[in-house]
Structures are given as structure tokens and as C-alpha cells.
Design a protein around this nucleic acid. Structure first.
Lengths: 335, 335
DNA sequence: TTGAAAGCGCTAACAC
DNA sequence: GTGTTAGCGCTTTCAA
């Protein structure tokens, strides 16, 4: 038997309104009555029906979290941060994994019209920026990603700066012929990471040879393949800066196959600091993104929007940091 | 502006009831009217309010998926399978990641009383079997795990048989002093995998030395540490069968550090076939669990229960298979 | 085949 | 401070 608020009213002898007030924490009930009512409710194990609440109050207390592919190691920690923040604030997460299918992604946005959630947290998307902005005009939204519109609330790291710093780091390790394998170049963050790399080279007075820039797609295979290309050329690089860890791992495997010793003959730098990067051999030197914190902050911002708090649009930038591991020489020893 | 069914009624000129019927697919409307109505609805982009539907029909069309820790690589593919099946059948997934906290796990079960979902899919749990059975009496439930009660609907592989086969495989590869690192021994599946191992040794006429059995906890560190113990003993094994891949990777790292060459001097076998196992060096020979299929099947069973179809309790067993990779010798060459 | 209307369980406006 | 009641948007029973 599941109780309704009417049952509780009957049992306690108060009206449904009083029960509702006691439950909501709003005032309109004397403190002692509230205590008494809550005690009985607790005893009975009564939990208000969410659908009724939602119907009445126009709130679902759900957040739709859009994820391109939950199998992608990058997203785990983000979700974790989102989950924690959401749960603590009384929200549940509806998992919007769309398996890298734009069609499924749209399906979820359509569902939003049926009020399955109060807001959307976009952890990743295949849609054009324009489309995202469009949806953000229909539903409360926070985006974790690079920044592509003043109209959005965005959580991200400064990809340009992080890439700049990473390139500088490789230089400090003694590498001079630094190549780059980019991510999908359509993504703003790929461009930012590329720009940061270029700017660093420029400031270092190293000339930026276009042959040293290869265009990948964030996948292991592209890192592997493009590293082979780079290392098979007659003027091969002595370091490769990959725009994510998976490609960096691919690059390492390619280098190993070609007989390059890492980190002496070749330095490899990744980006993201997924867990995997410290589980492979060699452990990958990389740029750490505070994904858990990014998730929490994004959820916090969204919930603030949902609860009517003032949230200014624009970028919310968290710090990235370099994690030296075994795929680069020690920056201190070599200068 | 968001439409309600009343708006649609007004616009089309039909009654609310007719709209509802057209939408639900049940009969009571003439085919042409239905078509007309659906066309208009589609044009307008009307989607019925889920909360109202739920309140009325006592269905949430949500499935609560309980996951100990989404960062654990084992669960990704399972969720994927669940998501696919659920979405296709019109269900959404509420993510019940409880971060290995039994308290949070219970919090989610409590939420169920507020009808946040129609049923529970337990991908993993920290609760006693008894508690799971208790909850399964309150809510529709399917469990992905080893089997611990006739009262539950359970999806799993035959861990005993898989471990038996894996041990046999090691033998066929020419290994004779086969050690075992178990998972958390409280878990039924750890016991089954241990039993399968023992049975294989017995049938092979190899004596099962208790010194060759180490009790781990599924973590990389325990694989690493226990492998070191095994390999430092005076009569060290020539193969280690770990009860999951993470421990197998730990064992490989330990072996490498001690100067053992894999797979010649030492064979290592894992279990699960997480993606990681083919990304490390050496690639781990392991027992493949069809996780995607397990997820789909489990979701299917749960939805069948929810839609009133007959689902018999008990085990639903999928096949595991051995994936030979680089951490064992070739079974064909050595005999 | 179609429409009117009750009512799911709750919140909040209103009355006392 | 407390109770009465309308009504959120839908499904479904009942009547036509």
C-alpha cells in the first residue's frame, strides 16, 4: 500500500494543505505540528508522488544530461560531478547518451517538450552551435565545452592557454621539433588548442612548419596513424603534442613500433588527463582538465538558473594544469 | 508557448478524448481522423506533458539504473545496451550512480517510493542479497550480476564455466603452474570463478596448491601486489589467472618489474574484456563478457515485466568466450 | 465513433 | 495558523 497525502491527512487529523506545508518547509504551520507530522510521515515511509508534484508545480526535478557517448572515457568524471551536485540539490539525472548519433540527440531535445526535465546540461553535442543556441532559448541550459556564443552559459578550461603552456613545457623539456596532432578541427576547442600551440612556437622563435601539423579526430587510431606519418618523414619531429590522451596513446604505440625510445628520442604530450593515460606504458604526460569540478560547477549553474538565481551568461573558466609523466623528459634536468 | 491537449482539441475541433485516443494508438478513432490529428500535432510540435500522463496512468516511463560507480570501466557498455533498448521502447534512464556508497544506494531506493521510475535495473549493488530481494518485492526489478536468489530475474554469464574454460585454455597454451588471483570473495561471481578454476585443475590432474590462490579485490593495486607475492615465492607460477582485467593489468606490470617476460615465462589471463585490456602492453588475454547484450537483455526483461508480459524468474545466462591476446602463448603452437 | 466529465495526487490561492 | 478547494494535463469511463 502506497500512501497519498490524503491518507496522511486522515491519519494525522490535519488537512492536506497542512501536510503539504509541513512537507515543503514553507511556513504556514506551527513548528510543533510540523514536527509531529514529519515524524508520522517518516514512520509510515510516505514519499510524495513526484508526478503529481511535477504536474502541479511545473517542475520535474530532473536534469537531462546530454552525452555523445558514455563509453568515451572523458565523460565519466564529468557525470560524476554532475550527479553529486544534482543529487544533493534534489535533482535526478536523466541520461541522454546519444551514441554519437545526431538523430538520437534531437530525439532527446524533442522529449524535452514533454517536460521530462527542467533543464539541459550539454556535456557534448554533435549539433551546430546555432542549433544549441536555439535550444537554449527554449530550455534552461548549461554547456560544458568550448565557448561559442555569448548567449550560452558555458563551463570550460582555457584551451588556448593550456595548449600554449603545454607546448612551452615540451620546450623546457628540451624538445625543439614539436609536432601537433589536432582533434576534429570543426570543434572550437581543437582550434584553440592548435592556436595555443602555434602561438607558443612563435613566441619561442621556432618556425611553425605546416608539415608538423596533422589533423586527427580524437580517436586512438588517428593518433597512431598520424604519428606514423610524422615519424616516417625525413625530417621527423622530436615531440608530438596530441589534442587528447587517446591520440597520444596511439602516437606512443606508433613510436614504439618504429623503434623510437620515449621520452628520449620522442616526447609525447596528451590532453585531458583521462585515467587511462596513467595506466598505459609509458604513462602519458598530459594537460589535466578538472572534469569533476567542471561537472559540479555546470550542474550548480544550471540549478541556479532553475531556481531563479541570477546567472550571467558567458564563459566560466576553470584552470587546466600540466601533469608530467613518463612520455616526456624531465623538464628540470634537461633545460 | 507550449500546447496542451486542450489547445489541440480546440485547434482541431475534436474533443480532448479523441486527441488522447489518436495519440495513444488505441482504437476509438477513425483512421482518417487519427491521421489528420497526428498531422496537425506533428506540425505544431505538440508533445504530451509527461507528468500529467504519469499521474494519470501511474507510469513514469523511467527506469532507474543502479550503478556502483560509473567510472568503473566495466559498466559503460552495459549502460549502453540498457539505454538503447530503453529508448527504443520509450523509456528514459534515470542514472542511479551511487559512488560505491551504500547510503546513496539506499537513497535511490527511497526515491522509488515517490514513483520516480517504474522499475529498477541493478547493474551492481553493495547491498546484501537479502536486501535486494526485499526491494524486488516492492518494485519490478532485474539484476545483472551473479545469481543469488530464485526470486530474482538475473542476467549473467556462467562464471563457473567461463573460469573453467579459461583455465583449460591456459593449460592448452602450455602453462602448468597456474595461479589464481580472485576478486572480492564475498561476491558470488568471485567464488564461481574460483570454483571453475579449481575444477579445471582437478580435471587436468594438476594439484591445486593453496599457495597459488591469492585473494584480491578487483582493483589494479591488488593484482599488482598479489602478483608480486606469487612471483617472489621460490616455487613461482608460470601463469596467473586474474578474476578481472584490472587485476590482470596490475599483474602484468608486477611481472614486468620483476623481469618476467610475458607471455613466455609468464602467462596472464584476465576476465571481463574491458576495452582497456586491449589498449595496454601486452594486450591482455581475457574472458569476454557480452556486456552490451547483457544490458539489452536486462532492459528487455524489465520492460517485459513492466508491460505485464510473462517473465519467469531465475537466471538468464549469456555466453562468455575467450579472447586470446598477447599476455598468453599461442594455444596452437605450444601444446 | 465521439464527447463530457471524473479524477490521478499534489500545491497554492483563498477564506476563515 | 489552518482548512477548503480549484486545477495542473492527461486518460478513461460512461453515455450518447
Amino acid at each position: 500500500m502506497r500512501y497519498t497525502i490524503k491518507d496522511i491527512a486522515k491519519i494525522t487529523g490535519y488537512s492536506v494543505a497542512t501536510i503539504s506545508r509541513a512537507l515543503s518547509g514553507k511556513d504556514g504551520v506551527s513548528e510543533e505540528k510540523r514536527k509531529e507530522i514529519l515524524r508520522i510521515i517518516d514512520q509510515l515511509g510516505y514519499i510524495p508522488n513526484q508526478s503529481a508534484r511535477r504536474l502541479r508545480s511545473k517542475e520535474t526535478k530532473n536534469i537531462l544530461v546530454m552525452i555523445p557517448d558514455i563509453e568515451n572515457y572523458f565523460f565519466n568524471k564529468l557525470i560524476k560531478g554532475i550527479e553529486k551536485e544534482a543529487r544533493e540539490k534534489g535533482y535526478n539525472i536523466i541520461l541522454g547518451d546519444f551514441s554519437d548519433s545526431q538523430e538520437i540527440e534531437e530525439e532527446y531535445y524533442r522529449m524535452m517538450k514533454g517536460q521530462i526535465a527542467d533543464g539541459i546540461l550539454i556535456v557534448g553535442s554533435l549539433s551546430e552551435p546555432q542549433r544549441i543556441v536555439e535550444i537554449s532559448r527554449q530550455f534552461p541550459m548549461v554547456v560544458i565545452s568550448d565557448y561559442f556564443s555569448d548567449e550560452l552559459v558555458t563551463v570550460c578550461v582555457d584551451n588556448f592557454k593550456a595548449a600554449y603552456d603545454a607546448t612551452m613545457f615540451l620546450y623546457k623539456c628540451g624538445y625543439r621539433r614539436i609536432a601537433k596532432i589536432t582533434g576534429k578541427i570543426g570543434a572550437m576547442l581543437s582550434q584553440d588548442r592548435l592556436k595555443g600551440y602555434k602561438m607558443a612556437l612563435e613566441n619561442l622563435g621556432l618556425n611553425c612548419d605546416e608539415k608538423y601539423i596533422k589533423y586527427g579526430d580524437f580517436k586512438y587510431e588517428s593518433g597512431y596513424k598520424l604519428a606514423k606519418e610524422l615519424l616516417s618523414a625525413k625530417s621527423y619531429p622530436d615531440a608530438i603534442f596530441c589534442s587528447n590522451d587517446e591520440m597520444a596513446i596511439g602516437a606512443c604505440d606508433a613510436a614504439k613500433e618504429l623503434g623510437f625510445s620515449i621520452p628520449d628520442e620522442l616526447g609525447v604530450m596528451g590532453f585531458d588527463d583521462i585515467e587511462l593515460s596513467s595506466m598505459v606504458t609509458p604513462k602519458i604526460t598530459t594537460v589535466h582538465q578538472p572534469r569533476y569540478e567542471m561537472g559540479r560547477l555546470a550542474a550548480q549553474l544550471l540549478i541556479n538558473i532553475l531556481t531563479g538565481k541570477e546567472v550571467s551568461k558567458g564563459k566560466y573558466i576553470l584552470d587546466a594544469s600540466i601533469v608530467p609523466r613518463d612520455s616526456t623528459r624531465n623538464a628540470n634536468i634537461t633545460k
